[in-house]
């Protein structure tokens, strides 16, 4: 029995066809193409923030 005779589907359903077409042109098949870096609109403002806790003042004995 040839392979051709064992196949059941004749034509894929429209949803299956469109799913294949979408994956064929997606850079990462099955994976979102979302940016890998998070955009930080206020990056400069964040950089100006003092992220480190203030150093303790020298204790005076």
């Amino acid at each position: 029995m040839s392979v051709q005779h064992t196949f059941l589907p004749m034509v894929a359903a429209a949803d299956e066809q469109s799913a294949v077409e979408a994956l064929m042109v997606e850079p990462e098949a099955g994976v979102s193409d979302a940016p890998r870096y998070v955009e930080i609109p206020q990056a400069l403002a964040l950089l100006k923030l003092k992220l480190s806790p203030p150093l303790p003042e020298d204790s005076k004995h």
């Binding site: 040839s2 392979v3 051709q4 196949f7 589907p9 004749m10 034509v11 894929a12 299956e16 066809q17 294949v20 077409e21 064929m24 042109v25």
Partner: peptide
């Protein structure tokens, strides 16, 4: 031969777009 038949059959089940117009269709 059977592998080639599978590839050929995949085009029958998922036929190519006859008249590509969009960029994505041209890529495909």
């Amino acid at each position: 031969r059977d592998d080639a038949a599978v590839v050929a059959r995949s085009f029958t089940v998922y036929p190519p777009t006859p008249q590509p117009t969009t960029r994505q269709q041209h890529v495909t």
